[in-house]
Design a binder for these strands. Structure first.
Lengths: 159, 159
DNA sequence: ATAATTTGTTTGACGCGTCTAACATTTGTC
DNA sequence: GACAAATGTTAGACGCGTCAAACAAATTAT
């Protein structure tokens, strides 16, 4: 689980796995568009990833992940999703902003943190009876400040 | 609140404000050690920050933040602290790892996210009666899996 | 099937942040 | 105060990731 890849290379791998959903294979132009970089950047990134055995890419052809590349791409994607969901569904950050922030933060999350974060999201969101009040309370706290203790207690007792 | 500074430059500013605590002024060597870079890197970063009006630094002299630099440094520091506390005190990530992760993530947090995150930490930690059970429950969830609903209810009713 | 368009690659350049090696200044010591 | 040690700077190089310009292949339209 050593994180020996740069943020950029992780972004390329992640974008490949995301673009591939449903479709057969991925084109350079798609990656370029998805990441907001020009095509030469993609070409050169792919050469590098190819040398590292993470993607398959023949000239003018489609791009595919090797098993190793797939593994890493999924890992990055999971980090991204955990962060995005935490921001959007728990902190109630605007979805657009949550996605953007998650995309930058994902590269900095250690395995230990990732594990805890994933558990935390489960913990907070998985109990449907608790979750709505809880998050509503938080939202109220964000917008209007402290919540009277008695209200807190009353609401939570309803679980 | 436009984030127009690189992660590196933010790190330099943050390290200056952190090293300055208590002491009078900050030396290049201290920054170098704190950030794990060689002194020439510090010198060149300071030149850049100086041109941008964020630090005061005369040759062979001490380093100080300008009001602008101070503002930004504090902002970075607050992001760092919010993340570190979230990871360490809520997710219960190992403190060392939490600090390291926070230090890398801090550059990716938008103002909107920062605001919500700070509120969230307050919300979770500020009510001393609720907080210990709540976090203990999460910890148990992390280590042993799902918690029976009735236990959950019983524990939370105690608030 | 040939021309026009879209897609992809190569080349060479640049900015950023880092480093080493060599040099300069300041500080501490005798 | 001179010398040694510690501290800081300059100069020049490098890796990374990006880009624009020029070129090449593949695709689409006529």
């Amino acid at each position: 689980m050593e994180r020996k890849h740069s943020a950029s290379m992780e972004d390329y791998l992640e974008s490949i796995i995301m673009l591939r959903e449903g479709k057969e294979a991925v084109r350079v132009s798609q990656i370029s568009k998805a990441l907001g970089v020009k095509m030469p950047s993609v070409t050169s990134a792919l050469r590098k990833l190819s040398q590292q055995g993470l993607v398959e890419h023949q000239r003018y052809g489609r791009v595919q992940l090797t098993p190793d590349g797939e593994r890493i791409a999924k890992d990055v994607f999971h980090r991204h999703e955990a962060l995005r969901r935490f921001l959007a569904e728990i902190l109630n950050v605007d979805p657009e902003i949550a996605a953007v922030d998650a995309c930058k933060m994902e590269h900095a999350v250690s395995p230990a943190t990732q594990k805890k974060l994933a558990k935390f999201i489960e913990f907070v969101l998985s109990r449907p009876k608790v979750q709505p009040q809880w998050l509503k309370m938080f939202d109220r706290y964000v917008n209007y400040g402290e919540i009277p203790e008695e209200c807190m207690t009353r609401c939570l007792k309803e679980e």
